[in-house]
Design a protein around this nucleic acid. Sequence first.
DNA 1: TTGAATACCATCTTATCCCATGCTACTTAT
DNA 2: ATAAGTAGCATGGGATAAGATGGTATTCAA
Lengths: 155, 155
Amino acid sequence: MFLSTATNTLDAKGRISVPADFRAVVGDGSFDGIVIWPSFDGAYLEGGGMKLMRAYQALIEAMDPYDEARIAFERTIFAGSRRLSFDGTGRITLPKEFAQYANLNGSATFIGLGSRFEIWNPDDHKSQAAAARKLASENKHRLSVRSNAPLVRGE
Amino acid sequence: MFLSTATNTLDAKGRISVPADFRAVVGDGSFDGIVIWPSFDGAYLEGGGMKLMRAYQALIEAMDPYDEARIAFERTIFAGSRRLSFDGTGRITLPKEFAQYANLNGSATFIGLGSRFEIWNPDDHKSQAAAARKLASENKHRLSVRSNAPLVRGE
DNA sequence: TTGAATACCATCTTATCCCATGCTACTTAT
DNA sequence: ATAAGTAGCATGGGATAAGATGGTATTCAA
């Protein structure tokens, strides 16, 4: 599970260390790295491990093959994403387009969101986090579990 | 899983490099290459590895033998497809009919879509991708997980 | 013999690997 | 309790290999 927030430096070659606790989550046997794509919801990147991609694949492939939203998802998430493997010390090299898309230079903030994570420009994240905090506070009553099922099975 | 997007050059002999990521996916033991066919949904090519063809075969053979959709699939996908093997450096030679069908000359864009991929004229792809992105954003709520099950089991 | 398709070789660019270093947090011993 | 030692993590730079691409040689068929 991706938890916590960390800001790391993005060097001239586009390399950035993925927080060690994130790396521990994505172990997949075959592929040692993460998958990242530009969010279609703002100027930041989204990512996760291969397990997350398979979960999205299952969701998308359960949709009607002729549903135009399905095709849009496929072309945005799968086609827009990149598989980035760790180097010996746990870094990835961010494609230039991605860094540009999220206004990253010099440093970037990883924020864990449970089953996935986001990468933000640190300043953008600061203002966004304040807004999110306010929204969460205003909606706190909605966090209660209404159904009988546990929110997260098996935990 | 086929991920990411890459534009490679198509030379005078009709050769084009298949992105290394894609080549890593199609490893099948017996056949070292990909299968491609003209899409019945637009001026682009579709393709995948032999595994994908076997998956389609299983799907199609589960359909009613006289279902006209079945016959259309068989004729488009199986009869229309070509098996293209890699040369020593990971290129395929695109049949001229295929290049014409998808308006390819000089370069072509490979886009990964999970279990399969598409090959587009780069310009056509650009306008198409923008539209897909917009549509995905408008439908983003449909990608959320409604059940109480965790998105990624075991995490 | 000529054309076309395929296999082979060369080069350049770019990404990946490897080593060295600094920093921080935690452990251990006095 | 404090100081020294140690291990894990983050970062910087240079060496190396892999990928993409252009060109030449060879084979097979008409």
